[in-house]
Design a binder for these strands. Structure first.
Lengths: 204, 204
DNA sequence: TGTACATCAGTGAACGCGCGTTCACTGATGTAC
DNA sequence: TGTACATCAGTGAACGCGCGTTCACTGATGTAC
């Protein structure tokens, strides 16, 4: 049975992650301060360092949650019986919707950097990989010409491409694609890429 | 005629930008400190604030240079007589090469954030826009079906997509596309996107 | 169940330090006559 | 050209402050008998 100590510890950890998550969603990563988080979580400043290694780890935990939520959003978006092309489009739309609905959490995933020399833990990298995994199945149907290695590579590229479009649009850098048009642009992107050279070959 | 004062001022400014540029290229944006820059530039700490508004503006000036260099690289990459598709590919390759050759400068452009509430000056935004401008001409040839507004939008999307692929690869997030394969992936991306639905329509 | 001791989480004041920015001063450049 | 004064850039020590992290202490939870 879980001891009271363990329960408290787990509890505090959760409250801290909740508080950090809320802060990030309001102020962004830069607005996250140890004092604010502990105040919001209802504990003393020092308690943070009992529950969690340091602030960076707390951010990692929030990002981990965000990735899980994003993963769920993607999973819920696809109809298992749908055509592959529709699955791809559904995934893209879900991704865009998620980013627009959670701009600061989404940004935090990509902008958080650990201090020099500290490596992103493997369990967290794994969470990244699992997201991309969801593209593989529908993409493999659309691109039977690709071997497993190329397929995985291409899925990563597609993911990264969509990511780039959403990022530059969200931060208004270079491209000022307004949010209303974002979905359409991503749609065109996915359409072109998941078809790829496949259809093009048919025309030769 | 330029007074000696003006000349000195211009000189110091240049040395400061040079020094900041070198620092960024070695240590990245995070490794840029006022003391280091002024030491390297051979002036006192306080002189920085005569020559330049503050550190953020100095970074902006370095980024501005980087954008100019990138712009030149793109311009030099295209053969004016080449086919549009080859032009697009040449632009993509030049972009990837530039990012791989100048990873920290390239990263600085996208990661530098001004303090809350301070806006990126218009002249700097304009430099962004001019980069994308270079895509318009070849893309318009390949996509005569697009009107001018859609064309500009699509060019931005293409740019952002390539950007995303390079970024995630460079930072090893999500996708671990190794640099050797990066060029091929970007090639496939540009190929698919600049053809877009155009060729696909032909097959209907 | 009760008692004595051990362990470890919670506390928040204090530490420490990195680092951008300022400021009183000096000395060079510019201007007026 | 020379002199007197004004201006403004260069200097670097000092300021200031934000903020993550520590640490000696207290008090609650766990363990042994």
């Amino acid at each position: 049975m879980e001891s009271k100590r363990d329960e408290n510890r787990r509890n505090l950890r959760k409250r801290l992650i909740d508080a950090a998550e809320a802060r990030i969603s309001e102020k962004g990563l830069r607005g996250l301060k140890a004092r604010d988080v502990t105040t919001d979580a209802g504990c003393a400043l020092g308690a943070l360092y009992n529950a969690v290694e340091d602030l960076d780890q707390l951010i990692l935990l929030v990002n981990s949650r965000t990735l899980a939520r994003l993963g769920d959003a993607l999973r819920n978006a696809v109809d298992v019986n749908a055509a592959p092309a529709d699955k791809m489009q559904a995934l893209g739309k879900a991704y865009v919707d998620f980013a627009l609905a959670n701009p600061r959490h989404w940004t935090a995933i990509f902008f958080h950097r650990l201090p020099e020399g500290r490596e992103v833990p493997d369990w967290h990298k794994e969470e990244h990989a699992q997201l991309i995994e969801q593209l593989i199945e529908p993409l493999s149907k659309m691109r039977p010409d690709l071997g497993p290695v190329e397929l995985r590579l291409r899925a990563g590229t597609l993911f990264a491409a969509v990511h780039g479009v959403v990022q530059l649009s969200l931060h208004g850098r270079f491209v000022g694609t307004p949010p209303e048009l974002l979905a359409d642009e991503v749609k065109a992107l996915i359409d072109a890429m998941s078809r790829g050279t496949h259809l093009a070959n048919l025309t030769k």
